[in-house]
Computed example of a mutant assay.
Amino acid sequence: MSAASPSEIVQQYHRAWTTGDIETAMALVADDISCRAPGGDLHGKDAYRAFLAGFAPRLTGIGDIAALADGDRVALFYYPQTAATATTPAAELFTVRDGLIAENVLIFDRLSYGPPQG
């Protein structure tokens, strides 16, 4: 049986966390993961787990996923849907090393996911 490709690893990870299965997602993440995210950088699996676990319960759906792969780097583009927005895009650029996600650059508009301004 062949090992999963970086694209398959990233898509398995994405499917897991967006359906609330944080532990399955974390099994695909390196202990020393680094993530550049709006609002601050995350270092290590515990910080990354807390970040995902804090956002995942807010999801009401995921729209239009596109994936592009170039070797060990995989980009995902999608629409995380919450009570606040269903049309704000997100993009992530992953680097996979030794079968685990080692780096993530996450891009999204934080303000779109906050409480409605009135």
Rank of each mutant, 00 (worst) to 15 (best):
P89F: 04
G71I: 05
Y113N: 00
V105R: 15
T82G: 05
G40L: 04
Q81R: 15
A25T: 01
D109A: 06
R110E: 04
P38T: 06
R110A: 02
V29K: 07
G61M: 02
R36I: 12
A47V: 08
A3L: 10
V105Y: 14
I62W: 11
L68A: 09
V96G: 04
A66I: 14
R110Y: 07
A16H: 02
A37Y: 11
P80E: 08
I65P: 15
L76I: 08
M26N: 00
A50G: 08
D21T: 00
D109R: 13
G61I: 02
F77M: 12
T87Q: 13
A91N: 13
G71K: 12
T95D: 13
T88C: 14
G71F: 11
A27N: 12
A27C: 02
P115I: 00
K45N: 02
S112A: 09
F108S: 01
Q11M: 12
P80L: 03
A37I: 06
A83M: 10
L52W: 00
P6D: 11
A66G: 15
R49V: 02
A91F: 13
Y48H: 13
A75H: 10
T19I: 03
D21Q: 11
A27I: 03
Q12A: 00
A67L: 13
D21H: 10
A90N: 12
Y13V: 00
T87M: 10
L111D: 06
G61N: 04
P80G: 05
G114C: 09
I62F: 14
T24W: 04
A69K: 05
W17M: 01
V96L: 10
G114L: 07
P80I: 01
I22L: 07
Q81F: 10
L93C: 06
E103W: 10
N104P: 02
G39E: 08
S5F: 05
G40I: 09
P57M: 14
D46C: 14
T24Y: 04
A84L: 07
L59K: 08
A69L: 10
A16E: 02
D64G: 10
D46L: 15
F77Y: 15
R110T: 05
T88W: 12
P38M: 09
S34A: 13
G54I: 08
A37E: 01
L111T: 07
L93E: 06
D41Q: 13
E8V: 04
D98R: 11
L68F: 14
